[in-house]
Design a protein around this nucleic acid. Sequence first.
DNA 1: ACTCTTTATGAAAACGATTACGTTGGCGCC
DNA 2: GGCGCCAACGTAATCGTTTTCATAAAGAGT
Lengths: 336, 336
Amino acid sequence: MAAATIKDVAREAKVSVASVSRALNDGRGVTAETSQRIREAATRLRYVPHAAARTLITRRTNTIGALLPDLYGEFFSELIRGIDLAARARGLHLLVSSSHDDADAAAAALRAMQGRVDGLLLMSPHADAAFLQQNLPHGLPTVLMNTRLAGADYCALSVDNDGGARLMVEHLLALGHRRIVFIQGPPGNRDATERELGYREALTSHSPDSPVAMLRGDFSEDSGYRAGQQVLAMRPRPDAVFAANDMMAIGCMAALRDAGICVPEEIAIGGFDDVPMARYVTPPLTTVQVHIAELGGQAMELLGEQIDNPDSVMAGIHRRVTAQLVVRVSSGAPLV
Amino acid sequence: MAAATIKDVAREAKVSVASVSRALNDGRGVTAETSQRIREAATRLRYVPHAAARTLITRRTNTIGALLPDLYGEFFSELIRGIDLAARARGLHLLVSSSHDDADAAAAALRAMQGRVDGLLLMSPHADAAFLQQNLPHGLPTVLMNTRLAGADYCALSVDNDGGARLMVEHLLALGHRRIVFIQGPPGNRDATERELGYREALTSHSPDSPVAMLRGDFSEDSGYRAGQQVLAMRPRPDAVFAANDMMAIGCMAALRDAGICVPEEIAIGGFDDVPMARYVTPPLTTVQVHIAELGGQAMELLGEQIDNPDSVMAGIHRRVTAQLVVRVSSGAPLV
DNA sequence: ACTCTTTATGAAAACGATTACGTTGGCGCC
DNA sequence: GGCGCCAACGTAATCGTTTTCATAAAGAGT
C-alpha cells in the first residue's frame, strides 16, 4: 500500500530504473514503444517521483520560500496571490513563513529554509545589511521586497511610493489647489518617508510658490482625525490634504465633517493605498493604488531569472512597481 | 563554498558521521565532551542538515500543505496566519497552494504535494467524495475545512454559521424586533445556506409567530441594495433585516438611506462576517464575527494529532469553530 | 566482411542523512 | 582473573532518484 517507487515501475515495465527515469524526464535515449510501456506502467501504479530523493541528487527543490513579516488584511492576500501565481507558472512550489515580529524569529525561519528552497523572497523590516550578511545562506538567490536596503549587494523590488505621491500632488495641483498639507506616517517607516519625499518633490518642482506643510501622524485613523483638527486651525486654511495613507485620510475627513466643512468643496482630500473601504466612505476617497499582486509576481519573476541562470549578476538590480492614481469624489475632480 | 555536510562536521570533530547524527539529534550514546566538540564543529562550519536527505530516510518532511481556493481579502490572510502560527509551534513548515478555481487545477496541485508534505489542509469547493477518493494520496493525514462533505471518511472542521445566525436572530428578537427578513446568499453556497438555516431555526423556536421571509441575494453589495428596495415595498414593513453577509447588509443600508429610512430607528440591520469596513459604515454594523485564524489554527491542531499518531481513528471527527455576535449601532441596541 | 559510429539499455555510483549492527574497552561481580 | 555487561563509537546499509559509464546490437561506410 506504500507509494510506488521507480523500482516498482521498472519491474512492472520490465526495464531498468535508468530507463524509467529517462522515459519520464527528457524522454531521450528510449525507444518510443519502451517509453510508452513505461508510461503505462507508471500510471497503472500511480507512480509519483519522490520529491526528496530527486532533490538530493539534482540539488533542486523546485520550491521557493517567502519570508514575510506580520501582515494584515488584503495586502498579505494579494502579495501571496501574486507570488503563488507566478511561481505556479514556473512549476515552483511556495513555502511561506510569516508573522515574524522580531529579528530572532526571522533569523530562525531563515535558517530553517536552508536547503528546502531554491530561492528566497524576503520582506522583513529587520533586514538590515548586518542581518542579511549574518543569516542569509550564501549563494541562495534572493529578492528583497520593500526593504530599506538600497544596497548593491542584493536584488530588490519595491513600491514606487515616491512616484505615486507625485501623481497625487500633480492631480491636486491640476485641480487648482495650491495650499496642500501632508499628513505624515510613522517616523522611520520607509513607505511613509518615500511618500513624503514625493510630495515635497512634486510641490517644489511644479508649484514652487506653494508652501510645504506637514502634520504628524502614525497611519492610524485617530491620528488622521487629530491632524484634521489641526488643519482647521491653520491660517490661511489649506485647499487640500494629502494623507500618507487611506486610514488617516478617512480620519481627517471625519474631523472635517464634524466641523461642518464640506469635502471636497471646501477642502479636497487624497489618500494612499486604496484600501477596499476607500470607495465606500462618503465622499469616496481619491487615492493612490498599488497593484500588490504585481509586486509579488514581479518579485517572483526576478527570483526565477536568478534561479535559472545563477551566474548572471543580478545583485544591485532594483526595480519598482508603479502606482496608479484612483480619482474619486474627495479630491473634487469634475465628474466626467 | 558549498554548504557543509555531516561528513565535513565528522572530519572537523574527528568522529564518525554516526556520532555527529547522534549528538545533534537525541544526544544519547555520546559523551558530553564529544557532543560538545561536535556541536562546536557544527556551528563553526555553519552546518545545517540537508532537509531532503533527512526526509528520504526518515520519511518525514516536517512540512504540511494547505490547498486553498481563490480567496480574497482578510479571510485568506487570517486563515494563513492561524495555520502558520500553529504549524510553527509544532516545528512544521507550510507549503501553500492557492487560487484553484477548477477541479483539474486542484487535482494537479494535490498530486504535486505528494511526498512533499506530512499532512494536508484542504479547503476546496470541488472536494466532493469522488474527487477526494480519486486524488487524495491514500494514507496521507488530511483535514477538510469548510467543505460540504459531512462524510465519516475524513476529519473535518468548519465554521458554525448556523450558531452564528441564531445568535443574531436572538439578538434582534431580544431588542423587540418581530418581523425579521433574511437576505440570502448565492444559491448552493454552503455558508449561505447554513446561515439561512440558523435564521429559520432561531425564528421558529424562539418566536413562532414571526413570519419567515427571504429575499434573494448573491453576497454582492448590489444585490443587498436591490433587496433593500424590496424591503421598502413589503407590507407590513419589516422591523429588521438580517443579511447573509456584511456587504449585502451595507448595500441594503444604502438603499434604506436613499429612501430616507433611518437605521436603526425605523429598521434594524444585521450582517455576517465582520469585515473591517463594518465598523466604519454609518451607522456601524452589528454583525457576526468568526475568528478565522482560529479556524486555521484548530485545523492545524487536528492535523498535527493525526500526524503524531497515525493509527488513531480521527476520520469522522467533525469540529466547528464558534461565531460571536458583535453588537454595534445598526441593530438598535441601547448603548451601554 | 570489417570497422566505426550511433543508439538503446543496464549496472552502479553518487547525493546526505539515519540507524541497525559490530566492535572495543572499561567496569563490576563472583 | 575471568566472565558478562554496558556505554561509546564506527561501519555500512538504506532511502529513491539521476547520471555516468560500460556494453551490446545495429546500421553505415568502404
